[in-house]
Design a protein around this nucleic acid. Structure first.
Lengths: 192, 192
DNA sequence: ATATCCTTGGAACGTTCGGTCCACGAGCGG
DNA sequence: CCGCTCGTGGACCGAACGTTCCAAGGATAT
């Protein structure tokens, strides 16, 4: 059970780091600051994190990976075409709402990653975009959606991703409601 | 004419800084690095910039201010309701395409600003969002657009702002075309 | 030629950076 | 009570940080 203790502690430190990175930026947050916030000295801190960049990688990777896993699961379920798109949107917004700090770090700071770490995160991000393309193509094939330019995926993702900046958990609307609201507008159009 | 020399040099340095900040982050870019890139020693550099944070402020403020000025101009012109919204979108995407580095810095790094500088930038940003709200309300009043939740402004801005990450000037589509493509989808809807 | 001002490079400041290292202490199976 | 592992604090490292300062260069007006 000491293994569990280690992992739990590592996760705790990474969570604290996500908050700090989100507030002050990756380069703007010092190791000393992180140590103080975690109540750990330099030695203990490095025992858990390995390096500062490893923390950034862990924060970034985990979110994208979890969204990829969720998308893969949905695509396997062969749902109604519109329902598939709606579920992907709801899943993303739910995750963003639950992990705002982590998503803020991911969106703003993934460029601070170097080498393979950077490549992995970028690849994972592109994979996610690919799943969205699949979902929309699926809708077109089922004649539920109009044929629209590929670029629209970027627009939809922009609409959804941007929520990390303004969505307040505990506000009027749940993440699911926001997702539906956006998709209603997009699918039905907003012309009078 | 020496005044012009000073301002031109300052603008040149700020432009170079925008590229560096966009690539390596604000905290990730050193004064030494900026000096080397600008071909200036420490003394000359500070003669033009005052401080590092002043550079970040200048980069951030200029873009938002210019979009606010543009929006105010359009709102004064009493255009057709749909045309107004389309022009605001085109104007924003044209500006983003022309100043990708500056917008990247603004979106990712404005949180690094402190005190009044931070307040000013945030206020200017909110003002811009207000203009979009006006433009959409205008469309509803003219019965061109359906009544939609206020929150949709966030979605539209997310869609448009996100382009700073992927739009390649000189690619297949002009900024105007991308703006129209997004607004077509949103206004007409994408249901088959 | 002189005085004035803008511009400039580079030394130097104290601080903080991310990371390493080591000695010590707690826990524990033998 | 030994010997070993794991967890830990803090001293310490060289490098880099943003900023200040100053002496001198260059140009222009008198």
């Amino acid at each position: 059970m000491t293994v569990t203790g280690f992992e739990a502690n590592r996760a705790r430190v990474i969570g604290i780091a996500a908050e700090l990175f989100a507030r002050n930026g990756y380069h703007g947050t010092g190791i000393a600051e992180l140590g103080t916030a975690a109540g750990l000295g330099r030695g203990a801190l490095y025992h858990y994190i390995g390096s500062k960049e490893a923390v950034l990688y862990a924060i970034s990777k985990e979110q994208v990976d979890s969204m990829n896993a969720y998308a893969e699961q949905l695509l396997d379920e062969d749902l109604d075409a519109e329902e598939l798109v709606r579920r992907m949107a709801r899943g993303l917004l739910r995750n963003i709402a639950e992990h705002r700090a982590e998503w803020a770090v991911f969106f703003r700071e993934y460029t601070a990653l170097t080498g393979e770490w950077r490549d992995h995160v970028i690849t994972a991000r592109e994979r996610y975009e690919g799943y969205w393309r699949q979902a929309l193509d699926n809708g077109v094939r089922a004649k539920v959606l109009r044929q629209t330019p590929r670029l629209l995926v970027k627009g939809i993702l922009g609409m959804l991703n941007y929520t990390y900046l303004w969505y307040e958990p505990g506000g009027e609307l749940t993440p699911d409601e926001v997702a539906d609201l956006f998709l209603d507008a997009l699918i039905e159009g907003i012309r009078a």
